[in-house]
Each structure stands twice: as C-alpha cells, then as structure tokens.
C-alpha cells in the first residue's frame, strides 16, 4: 500500500507518465495489430526491452487464443496476470546472523539503501553493524557515517584507499564479538566490465564466507530504475561473478518505471526484494509484484 501511494503520488506530478497508453490499448474495440502495437509501445517505454516485450506479448497472444478472448477489456486482466507472474518470486525468510552485501554500478543508490536497511532492521529490534567497504570514492565513508547516525547503528571504517576486504573482516569480527544480528556491507560503485574491480568484490565475498560460514549471506545488486537495457548486462555480470540473490530497485519516485527488472526476471530469474522511493530513511519498501505492475500499467 505504502509503495503504491508513494509512487502514484510521484506519478501524478508527471504529465508525461507512460500515460494512459495501456489503458487506451485495453479500451480499444478489437484485438488487432494496433492493439498489440499499443501494448508494445507501453512496455518498451517502461524499459521492459524489446526481447522481453516480444516474449510477453507472445504469451498474451497464446492465452488470448486458448481462452478464446475477443475483447481488449478481457485481455487486460489476463495481461496483468502474465506480467505479475513474470516477476513474482518466492523469497526465503532471513535467518540470523545475517549478512547483506550491496553491489552495483556507480551512483545507483547503494549507500542510501544501506542507511534505509539499517533503519529497517533496527526498527525490527535487530542489532546492526555496517561495513564501509567503499574505500575508493571521495567521502564515501563520511556519507555512510551520516546514515549510521540517522539509523543509530555502528559503522566500521578504515581510511580512504584501504583494503575493503579488511574493513569487512573487522566489521564481522566486531559482530562476532558483540553477537550482532545483522552485518550490512556497502561497497564502492563499479562498472561490471572492470575485471579487477569485480575481483575485489569476489574477495569481499570470500572473506564473509570464510569468517561467517553459517550466517545467512545475501548478495543484492542495486539497480537504478532510470537505467535502460544495460541493467540486464549489469545483473548478468554481477550474478556471474558473485552469484547475486536479488535486486534492490531505487529511484522509483521518479518517472522511470524500472521495467527492465521484468527483462531481468525473464532472463536470469532474479527477484526484486526492495524498492527505493525517495531520499528519506523510510523510503525503502518491500517489493510487491501486484503494486509494481499496477504502477507500470498506470492503474489505480
């Protein structure tokens, strides 16, 4: 509910929102080429990408045929169902001790999401420590420290240019010593085509696996909803390199729809766990496939 309310309030502000296109498509009289063209346009404009769009429309065509549907209006519920199914995943509950690592390219919102997650766990009564493993970007650990203060959690950091794996090691040592429930790891933004930086990330993961072999270790990739088809490439490579468990989709308070996560779900079966809908500490919401598709289809 909160998710939907926040996003739709953002949407209302835009004149350009993917509009009523889908609505228009569905209120047409016939299931002709024009109908499918309208659907195609709506999906592509939402960054679903041409490949996934074609797959989804193919699926819709099949079901329309199988169910002998002749009216666009009836196709609407069907299409919604197809879309929801494509991104609805069963997610295993967390167990503790829990380690969450956030990865992703530069500027997508990793550090902010760490702050929001810290706050979320804190509110659930868990103890939290954050590892400032972005030792590269200017003022990254200062930024994280502000978030640590806001959430009221400890932040472990070393100096700029130090070894990120060592920061993680220390944070875990501290968590072990104090019996902390949750370790959150903020990493430096890195483009997935930079091999040495991806190696660094693997090393961090090895440290976690070695130091806390029995912990629940989740690795998420943070994606910016404004990103286009390159997000598929990002998810693909991060998954290959560190076996990502899921996605945090940020900046959904803008006008971009983040439809690329549908392409990613189709191709890599990666679920979205949380969405970011603003810059405040409580602007992180568990992902809900129904709401997401409602917003994508611009329905209320």
């Amino acid at each position: 509910m909160g998710f939907f309310a926040k996003i739709s309030s953002g949407l209302k502000k835009t004149k350009e929102a993917i509009k009523r296109r889908l609505f228009e498509a569905f209120s047409m009289k016939e299931l002709d080429d024009e109908f499918f063209d309208e659907l195609e346009e709506a999906l592509i404009t939402a960054d679903v990408g041409i490949d996934a769009t074609e797959t989804l429309l193919e699926r819709l065509r099949d079901e329309i045929y199988e169910n002998r549907i002749t009216k666009p209006d009836d196709a609407r519920e069907l299409f919604k169902k197809i879309l929801i199914e494509s991104i609805d995943f069963e997610i295993e509950d967390f167990s503790y001790p829990l380690v969450i690592l956030l990865s992703g390219v530069n500027g997508v919102g990793k550090t902010t999401a760490i702050g929001k997650l810290a706050n979320m766990f804190k509110l659930q009564g868990k103890s939290v420590v954050v590892a400032a493993a972005d030792t590269f970007r200017a003022a990254a650990s200062e930024q994280l420290e502000v978030w640590g203060e806001r959430a009221g959690v400890r932040v472990v950091h070393h100096g700029e240019g130090s070894d990120p794996a060592a920061v993680v090691f220390d944070a875990i040592a501290s968590a072990k010593a104090r019996g902390t429930d949750v370790v959150l790891i903020d990493t430096a933004g890195r483009l997935h085509n930079k091999k040495n930086l991806m190696e660094e990330l693997k090393k961090i993961c090895r440290v976690v696996a070695r130091e806390l072999p029995d912990a629940d270790f989740r690795k998420y990739i943070v994606l910016d909803a404004t990103t286009g088809q390159n997000a598929v490439s990002q998810a693909e490579v991060f998954s290959e390199d560190i076996d990502v468990d899921g996605i945090i989709l940020t900046k959904l308070d803008g006008t971009a729809k983040g439809g690329v996560v549908i392409a990613i779900a189709e191709q890599l079966s990666l679920p979205v766990l949380y969405v970011g809908v603003g810059e405040k500490i409580d602007d992180l919401i568990p992902f809900d496939a129904n709401d997401f598709i409602d917003v994508l289809l611009d329905e209320e």
């Binding site: 939402a46 960054d47 690329v260």
Partner: peptide, 14 residues
C-alpha cells in the same frame, strides 16, 4: 546524464 539511462531520458532532459 548517466549514459546508461533508459527510455525516460527524454522526459528528464526535456
């Protein structure tokens, strides 16, 4: 502008 931006680039730039 981030070169990885998707379809929304037009809305933003405009």
């Amino acid at each position: 502008v981030d070169s990885m931006t998707g379809q929304d680039a037009v809305t933003v730039a405009d």
